[in-house]
Amino acid sequence: MNQPRTYTRGMQRWWLRRPSYRFYLLREGTSVVIALYGLFLLAGMAALAVGPGAFETWRGLLFSPLSWLLHLVVLAAFTFHAWTWFKVLPLTVPPVKTRRFPRGFTDATLNRVALWAWGVVSLVILVAAMRGLQ
């Protein structure tokens, strides 16, 4: 039997079709910002290895107004990415593990617990880093 002729519509501008697609792209896009910032920190370490002069130049970059602005953008991207990461976290946890928790321990609970743990750990690291700088 002959296969009937079919018509397949393309994926042109697929992200415009649903708001959730744009949210998804934003979520994935922020990971690029995180990767770039990781490279920037790596450049700082490389500068440290090269010598005190190079490191001071790299450190000097941090104090320009543009750097402040970029750091605010990066902080926003990090926060958004972490928030969405914890939002999808419950999907990756096998139910075998969650069943040992009391009844009523839902995805939302797991998400909240993880967010709090993240907040506390971040705060501890921040305080420790600030102390180290003094």
Partner: peptide, 18 residues
Amino acid sequence: TLVGECSEVCPKHVDPAR
């Protein structure tokens, strides 16, 4: 890549993303 929309639209709440 965990777009997650499969679970949103599922009329039987199957949750394929999970």
